[in-house]
Simulated assay, not measured.
Amino acid sequence: MSVSTVAVVGLGIIGGSLARAFKAAGLEVLGIDSDDGTLSAAASEGVVSEDSFNINSADESSFRALKRADIIFICTPVLSIVPVVKRLAPFIKRGAVVTDTGSTKRVVVNSVKEVLPEGVAFVGGHPMAGSQYSGYGFSRADLFSKSPYILTPAEETPLEAVETLKALVFKIGAVPHIMTPEEHDGMAAAVSHLPQVIATSLVNAVRESDTSGEYLKLAGRGYKDTTRIASSAAGIWIDILLTNRDEVLNMISIFKKQLGELQRAIEASSAPDIKRIFERAREYGNGRNEDFGCDGRR
């Protein structure tokens, strides 16, 4: 499938970075957002086309520009993805491919098929890259460089749609990996959602114990690295945690078990047990970059 025009809906840090990356790769980018200021900024920088439009516009004539798009990326919070696809559906051309960048996949993949126009394929997507910051102002073209980019096609998804998206992912410097929505949500709960839960809880634990108000002034690199993502926007994470509730709760239970094991070792002043726990983590952590092949295979 030949791709010349890509539409990006939601020009935040993920959508804005995708728009910049596709523009740098030589594609035309149609921007769609709910904020006129963001659209104006992206257009003035030449990142998106002049006929980019506000999705909340009452004048639907501007929506006809979407007919040019070969691929449409929905870069909104998880629970907004299906409503956005439904809003845009009358203007999506037959043969186009719709994808998303949401952090959970089962709910999206199972629900979006109810609102997709006939002849339009959907491939779930999740770039494993980002920042604690939000907004177009923090977007950059190299955000996805060398990062995993998960694609979660349904059983009925045409192979051509998947291959087209894989090619686009490679074009922006990311590494595509194919898995089922179920596999994705289990994986994401472990390596994305649980770390957010832990970082947020750690900051709140320090906040509770910091009676002097001086702790953060003295915090070193370890604390800052561990808690960086605790600054992420709450609204996005509400959607993620509630649409992946079962997998996140499972990982919290596993984490509590591991934390309890370490707590008991400390309580028992057992140096051998503490050493064993740390070395077990170190051994697994040191092999983390060998789990995925650079050719996109899982």
Rank of each mutant, 00 (worst) to 15 (best):
A174R: 01
T76G: 06
L218Q: 04
I55S: 11
A234F: 09
F53P: 03
T157F: 12
S34R: 12
S147N: 01
A129E: 07
A233V: 13
K113W: 02
G37E: 09
G213K: 06
S270I: 13
R288W: 08
K275R: 07
I55D: 05
A89K: 02
S4R: 09
K224M: 10
S34F: 00
D51L: 07
T200F: 05
T243W: 00
S270L: 11
E183Q: 14
S49V: 11
A167E: 14
I150E: 00
I236M: 15
G16H: 01
A129C: 08
A233I: 13
P90L: 10
I71E: 01
V48A: 09
D142Y: 00
A121P: 12
D100A: 07
V85K: 01
S209A: 15
S62L: 14
K217V: 01
I254M: 07
H126S: 07
P127A: 12
V169P: 15
I74F: 07
P158M: 03
Q263W: 07
A205P: 05
R207H: 11
A7P: 06
A190F: 10
G173F: 05
P77K: 06
R280Y: 03
R228Q: 12
V8S: 03
K256F: 02
I252G: 04
S147C: 10
G137A: 14
T211E: 13
